[in-house]
Write a protein that binds this DNA or RNA. Structure first.
Lengths: 173, 173
DNA sequence: CGAGAACATATAGACAAGTTATATATCCTG
DNA sequence: CAGGATATATAACTTGTCTATATGTTCTCG
């Protein structure tokens, strides 16, 4: 029934465009599910910020604004609320007293672990219901999925940079 | 045979549960990143609602609140704004004059199509940055992603029933 | 060296999208 | 047909985002 998933061989009469359509629909719908399932106790941007800090270590407010694709005042506010929760701390850079370095705390790391477990629970459960062959195919694609996330991250920075420039050069069209 | 998917060679003695967790995390991160690239002209809940109406036909306000996982007043507001945009209409049920049936319009369907197309485009753009081999691996996994969506949908409906019961029996724990 | 441009963050004010609590209108049931 | 249950609406509040601008720090160059 489902199209013989032999790792990269079985690509038959489907055009890339069709594949793209299918992919987009599936991704689109998974997104919708993801949204409805995700805990609402913290904004996606805050979670993503926490995740970035966890992966890359302490970052400036402005760096976070760029990487998360939100404005600097938003990050200031978001960091303030993460500080209230004890998930990050604000450190000063002795070399430049204007900057605020934001670092994740142990509590922040713990929160991230719990959160991820909760969010992925249903996906993990779903993956277990797949056949062995399906699961294997998915496993084979995992590194690519991770790559794709990096690519998407990159696209977001680019895109937001562009949007920002455009707004500056066309103040009110 | 099954677990020989040696696309990325050195991964051996992984259990299905581990695979599930890993896959879930990877998919989770991709979605979390991708979602912030999608157009912001409408709330995710509204898009999801529109999508539900498109799939299942007209629904009551309260049914939508349940299926989208938001409160009834939120749906009332959200529907009001969709009506302003011309994407849904409010119909009355002759059998029960309390209820409001919400139905998607042609314009709503068109919006949804455009929105999906936009997602496709972004996704395609990201995939184009992968190597041919990576793209092929991903393509092989697409049918599985679609299956995953279906399984997640199924699990979600089960889970929501449970959550609702629980909330009713434990008003304030 | 010092004045002013550039930069990093903070603050203010507005808006959108949720929430809870409650009001209103309709239905159902004994 | 009175009163409880149900479906939706309204009000008041919170949160997260934005733009515009203020404040404090660093850099540059005459």
């Amino acid at each position: 029934m489902l199209r013989k998933v032999s790792t990269s061989a079985g690509r038959r009469a489907s055009t890339p465009a069709e594949d793209g359509q299918h992919a987009a629909s599936a991704v689109h719908d998974l997104l919708a599910s993801f949204i409805r399932l995700t805990p609402r106790d913290m904004s996606l941007t805050s979670v993503s910020t926490l995740s970035t800090l966890n992966r890359t270590g302490p970052r400036r407010i402005t760096e976070l604004a760029a990487s998360e694709g939100v404005t600097q005042p938003s990050v200031t506010a978001l960091v303030a609320s993460l500080v209230r929760d004890g998930f990050v701390e604000r450190l000063s850079d002795p070399a430049d007293r204007r900057v605020v370095m934001v670092a994740i705390t142990k509590e922040g790391e713990a929160y991230l672990r719990d959160r991820r477990a909760a969010s992925t629970e249903i996906f993990a459960e779903a993956v277990e219901k797949l056949s062995a062959e399906e699961a294997a195919t998915l496993t084979a694609a995992l590194p690519v999925v991770e790559r794709l996330r990096d690519v998407v991250d990159e696209l977001r920075s680019l895109r937001q940079g562009q949007a920002r420039e455009k707004r500056q050069s066309e103040p009110d069209a």
